[in-house]
Structures are given as C-alpha cells and as structure tokens.
Amino acid sequence: MNKLLCLIGLSSILLASCKKNEDAGPAPSKIKIAESTTSSGLKVTLLADNNTFMVAYNKIYVSLNNADGSEVSNARVTCSSLMDMGSMQHSSPAEQPVYKDSENLYEGAVVFSMPSGDMGSWQLTVNVNGEPVVFNVTVVSPPSGFKLTGTFAGTDGIDYTVSLIEPARPKTGINELELLVNNRHDMMNFPPEEGFTIELNPEMPSMGHGSPNNVNPVYTNNGHYKGKVNFTMTGDWRLHLRLKRGNTVIVEDAALDLLF
C-alpha cells in the first residue's frame, strides 16, 4: 500500500510508467514556488518543475521582472543553498542560472542533499546583480524506492556527491544517463568533479540480476557525465557506480536507486 501511495505521489515527478504509453507526454509546465522583491524593486519569481523540492538534483528557474512587468534578461543571477541545522550550517552543490531566451527564464539547478524537517531547514538565496533574495524552501525526501543523490566518502579522504539528472522519466529499454558529480571542498563549496572514470552496473535488488548493453558515463563538462542505462523491466533498479581516478578506485559503490 505504501508503495502504491509513493507511486501516486511520484507521478507528478516521474510520469508513472504506464505500459504501452505511446509517448512520454508534454514537458511539465513550471510551477511557481515563491516570489520576492529585491531592494532595488525587481520582482524575483522562483519556479521549479514540481511544487516542492526533493532530495535530488532540482532544476530551478528564476524569472525577473521590472515593476512594470517587463522581463529582465541581462541581470547577473547566482544562487546558493544553505542548510541551517542550528549547531552547524552547510550548503550543497548548485549550478548557476543562465538566461534562456526561449523560456524568458534563468535556468539553474540545486542538489538538495537532505530533507528539511526537525534537523533543520533549507534556504535558497538568489542573488540578482549583487542583491540577495532569500527564499525559505521545503525539501522533501523522495518516495521510497528512490535515492537520487548521495554523498560518498572517497578513499582519498574527500566526500563526493553523485546526483542523477537523467533519466528523469525512466522507461523500459535504453535510457540516457546523466550524472552530476561534485566534491566537497568545504561545507560551503562543492565544485564539480572532472577527472573520474565511472563504471555503471545496474541491478534489480529484488531479483539480483543486472542488464546488458549499458554505456559507462563519461565526462562531458561542469561535473556532468553521460552514458546509457538499460532497464530490462519496470520495478526497483539500483545503479551501482564505481568512481575511479585512473586505475584507483575512489568510491567503490556510489549506489543510486530508482523505481518506475
């Protein structure tokens, strides 16, 4: 039953894989999360693909408008996250927003590494031309069956965050796979990690089998690695990722889970 609820809850995020669904459906419209105004009077609207952020790689979108409603397309926009746990604070990996003409939006991404709750709460700071706007945002855990980002201790003493970008809507068969890998330089800085060789090995934990014809993700840019993953059926899948630098294994098993 729980699984079922999770699945229903998930359907807004990942189109529930309906068998024989002929097409993946239209791209979801963006949802307004919050809005605020900078001290100089620019209206800042924060949007996302879903109505709440999740412990995962989250796309964020910023819309900037003058008081008269006109779009501002040439601002300098940055964003950063902050987890305030009372006794300590930390940030998380982020990709800085870039203006996209087609959408009239600044598009970036944030990896939230834990849910908000009793432990602490998340703030997302959007900085427009040097003027910060702070949004208190809620981050929820992914439904059970999902682990879309994780931090893994490397054999070199550094922690690495591995986040799943694609497939956002997994389907049976070959899927594009895209990962973001960051290292933790300190609690506030998570620069993208470039130098890894990644070995991918998907597995169905409930059956113990894998799948053939996967393509190991290779580095593209900005900490992104692209490959292909083959899901032979629907159900629970675990992506075992071995991160290597040269021939040295840095992380033996950075495992991410998904379910469809």
Binding site: M233, G235, L259
Partner: peptide
Amino acid sequence: AEMTMYPDSGAVMFMYTLSD
C-alpha cells in the same frame, strides 16, 4: 507476451517477453 513479477519486498516489475 508479458511478465509481471511480484517480489516479496520491492516494487512490482513488468516487462514484455514478446514485445508486441
């Protein structure tokens, strides 16, 4: 031909054995 599997724990799994 299809196969739907029901593990003791974990989600239901579905695949085609003969895929249309």
